[in-house]
Write a protein that binds this DNA or RNA. Structure first.
Lengths: 284, 284
DNA sequence: CGAAGAGTTGAAGCTCGTCAATAATCGTGG
DNA sequence: CCACGATTATTGACGAGCTTCAACTCTTCG
């Protein structure tokens, strides 16, 4: 039942799996370049500059905190390998997870403005990060407008993801939330090429993280996941995620995927100059 | 009630009311300048450029839609007077409100990147807006780095507010959500000087908006508000908001206010260069 | 005045949280 | 290698918070 699904990706059609690893195939490629490459075409010069920017690397262990609320730093971290999580605690001990950082993601945009962080970021896995000096990053942005533009786009994308999460947490029920989130995270993993040969994903999240992501309790998450399994939708166990029924899952979660801006050239769907439409309050 | 509004500034004006209206007092001041002025000190040249940018104005009516999902435009709207709301619908008819736009706020950052909007924005009141041609805006940003920086900050602030909302919707119960939101919106109104002489606020939101903001039903919002009233916390009726117990409300909602970045020079609270702290998973 | 929107109230029920106990799994050290 | 504690996952019983449905009132506005 679920091997059949799983093999779809790997066997016959590797297309979806790696369509974002254009030319180079050497494993220790720079994930930042790959990521920005999705938003703009980078020249050799620009790629070199980015490579130089990431030269200082560091290995860190599971559970370490990258940035802490209220801190300012003259460095920005770039995730090279591993997964980090961004979150805030409430005084009552509850935690809201605000995002997951995968390879290629920057530990925040405070390089854009003098601004301290309002949350923590820490590691869900052992990881390797690059430590970018902000002033160097700034110079690169100044020297290469394309790079700056691409960086701004990552920020806009990030915000789009936040809005999507708000929608998810605010308006959907537990099953839908989970379904949507699973679609999102697997999509991101896929765009990074991090799909196992059997079509599953290795995602280092426990049910605790899932719960704190969607404002649910662990108990309830557990029950939902079990039902997913029983229904043949998703098999998530031992941090191995296998999606058995992609269609069903997307439909349940109302997942669109456009907002992730992963290598999609947004078709200009509608072009009403500065016109303001007539009164219209979209009747639900 | 609406005219008395304008006199607030001049009359007996309590301190808190006008601490963000530095020098000029002519009523039709440019709200964009005032807003950016909170992030940076603008030169006369810069102010002129911004004024020129906003020269094309337009009056619009309640319920009109400023921007529509999926559209791209070569203009950006700036709210001069009135209130707009940003939202998305789910296919099941549920709506999540993603933000409120008050005078001085820009109808989005798609001027930064070639990027279509993933939501609608429409008016909760009659309003006056300025229509900024994106290419002009871009030139101004190029010519005046200070302005660009300030604009980026508004974007970062916007994102901080989104995170705060996510926390709110995800982790608090109905009363806390409401309390938090009321703190936020009143704070923003206050920073705009839009406080009535009696200390109340005129906020054009119905309970429907409140519900869609926090992922609750109108019925439940109604009950909560009534209890607030009974408890002497807040009196919100007929779009007139009076906060009776600021302390109590803030405590209930866990409201901090720092994230709004309203005229606060962020003290560099903590200065650990690029150091990575020791393992520490903050035990709740 | 009549219609439409906004707010209120009550009853009933479902989703999800809470509490608590048990398994399963993992990392660590003896 | 097995034993140990710690984390993670599962299960059941129970209850609370919030939703749903429906009726009714009040206000606004043409």
């Amino acid at each position: 039942m679920f091997t059949s699904e799983a093999t779809i990706e790997s066997s016959a059609a590797p297309v979806a799996t790696r369509c974002f690893v254009p030319i180079e195939t050497h494993p220790p490629a720079n994930p930042l370049i790959e990521k920005l490459g999705k938003f703009a075409t980078l020249s050799g010069q620009e790629r070199d500059a980015l490579d130089r920017l990431c030269r200082s690397r560091k290995k860190l262990g599971l559970g370490e905190t990258l940035v802490r609320e209220g801190c300012r730093s003259s460095f920005v971290f770039l995730i090279l390998k591993g997964v980090a999580v961004r979150y805030r605690y409430l005084s009552n001990g509850k935690r809201q997870i605000m995002g997951y950082l995968l390879p290629g993601d920057l530990c925040d945009a405070h390089f854009l403005v003098r601004n301290y962080l309002d949350h923590d970021i820490s590691l869900l896995t052992d990881a390797e990060v690059a430590v970018l000096p902000i002033h160097e990053l700034t110079s690169v942005m100044a020297a290469f407008p394309t790079v700056r533009q691409a960086l701004l786009e990552t920020m806009v994308t990030d915000r789009a993801m936040l809005r999507e999460w708000l929608l998810n947490v605010g308006q959907r029920n537990a099953r839908q939330k989970l379904a949507h989130f699973i679609c999102e995270i697997s999509q991101r993993m896929q765009s990074l090429g991090q799909v196992n040969p059997d079509g599953s994903y290795s995602i280092p999240l426990t049910q605790v993280e899932l719960a704190d992501t969607m404002g649910l309790t662990v108990v309830h998450v557990s029950r939902c996941l079990q039902r997913f399994r029983a229904e043949g939708l998703v098999y998530w166990s031992r941090q191995q995620l296998t999606i058995l029924d992609v269609q069903g899952l997307r439909q349940l979660g109302g997942f669109d995927q456009g907002y992730l801006h992963i290598g999609l050239e947004p078709a200009s769907r509608c072009g009403t100059g500065g016109e303001v439409g007539p009164r219209s309050l979209v009747a639900a």
